[in-house]
């Protein structure tokens, strides 16, 4: 390698860093060659000629487009980090072994978790029923006591196959609308973490997604009691909802808008002054997609209503008023800010 101060045209041309500097204009390389010019101003003409020649040899991609492609790839890599398909069968056994182990742990957790929640911790055999809706799905349940439950997407509910004589208990993760069959002898209790909702006969909505900061119980008819760690904290009457902010552990009572809160069970997506992050959370769940977007995207409270609409049409509608471009590829949605 010749000394930098002796660089000829040819030396510049075949220098990897110099090639990269012209081709990609990366910060690190630019700093090097700018500094070089400062130290060797006599080389400017040669350097510029070398730059001109190399410029002709490459077709460059605009920086913005490259960043977009890179982000796309980054998310592909992230998404496929764990589940590597292996080709040798011996490895497969190992994998199933781990899967079995994990599910045993999970089952144990569920079992002990349940013991903590409920009053039947003494009973030895609990036959649990578990229903889960994936993202993009909803489902209806009819329990043996004629209680109807509608599960929103990405929700899990667990309950004993046969309710006890004196109590009906379910555990919920996610969002569900309950229409509880009245039975004065057997209260119906929904457990969400250390919060319990105790009712006799009534209809109400519970929204308790673990990834969200608030948990809310919205009462439509009847009467419910909200208990925390076994103590009654609040009593709700129709049109009121209880909201627990998880970070502050603060429980408040307020009126709610049933059109907004209960829209999901009629297959309506409704936003009111929603931030982009809120919109994304709802749509990801609803359509089973992942959004890739600039966290700085600025939406000043989006309000809108969409009834049984394809994701593409919905986004088309939104993109005009909010001002973004989008691209749907399989289960991924790219949002490009204009």
């Amino acid at each position: 390698m010749p000394k930098l101060s002796d660089y000829t045209l040819e030396d510049f041309l075949v220098d990897e860093s110099f090639q990269r500097f012209v081709r990609e204009n990366s910060d690190t390389d630019r700093v090097i060659w700018e500094e070089y010019l400062r130290l060797h101003p006599e080389k400017e003409a040669t350097l510029l000629e070398a730059k001109k020649i190399i410029d002709q040899l490459y077709i460059k991609i605009p920086q913005k487009e490259f960043q977009y492609e890179l982000e796309k790839f980054r998310s592909i890599v992230e998404a496929n980090k764990i589940n590597v398909p292996k080709e040798r069968s011996s490895n497969r056994f190992k994998r199933y072994g781990i899967a079995a182990f994990v599910s045993v742990i999970l089952l144990t957790t569920v079992f002990f978790g349940l013991k903590n929640y409920s009053s039947y911790s003494e009973s030895k055999v609990i036959s649990l029923v578990e229903r889960t809706t994936e993202r993009g799905r909803k489902s209806n349940l009819l329990l043996k006591d004629s209680t109807r439950i509608k599960l929103n997407a990405q929700t899990t509910i667990k309950y004993a196959e046969t309710f006890k004589d004196d109590i009906r208990e379910v555990q919920l993760i996610g969002e569900a609308f309950f229409d509880v069959k009245e039975d004065k002898e057997r209260p119906f209790i929904v457990h969400v973490g250390d919060v319990s909702i105790k009712v006799l006969g009534t209809s109400f909505n519970v929204r308790a997604y673990p990834e969200e900061n608030t948990l809310s119980v919205s009462l439509v008819t009847g009467k419910v009691e909200i208990l925390k760690n076994g103590h009654i904290e609040l009593t709700l009457t129709p049109n009121y909802e209880a909201t627990l902010t998880k970070s502050s552990d603060h429980l408040i009572k307020s009126l709610f808008d049933p059109k907004l809160k209960l829209a999901w069970k009629d297959d309506i997506i409704r936003f009111e002054k929603a931030s982009f992050a809120e919109i994304v959370t709802v749509l990801e769940r609803w359509y089973d997609v992942d959004f890739i977007y600039d966290k700085d995207i600025d939406v000043e409270g989006f309000t809108g209503e969409f009834t049984r609409m394809s994701l593409e049409n919905l986004l088309k509608g939104m993109s005009h008023s909010v001002g973004f471009d989008f691209k749907i590829e399989g289960r991924k949605v790219w949002i490009l800010t204009k």
Partner: peptide
Amino acid sequence: KDDSEAMIKLYKRHYHILYS
């Protein structure tokens, strides 16, 4: 060996040439 950082690095390093 599953190093995702290395994967991204390789991508960044060669993308421009491949594009051209």
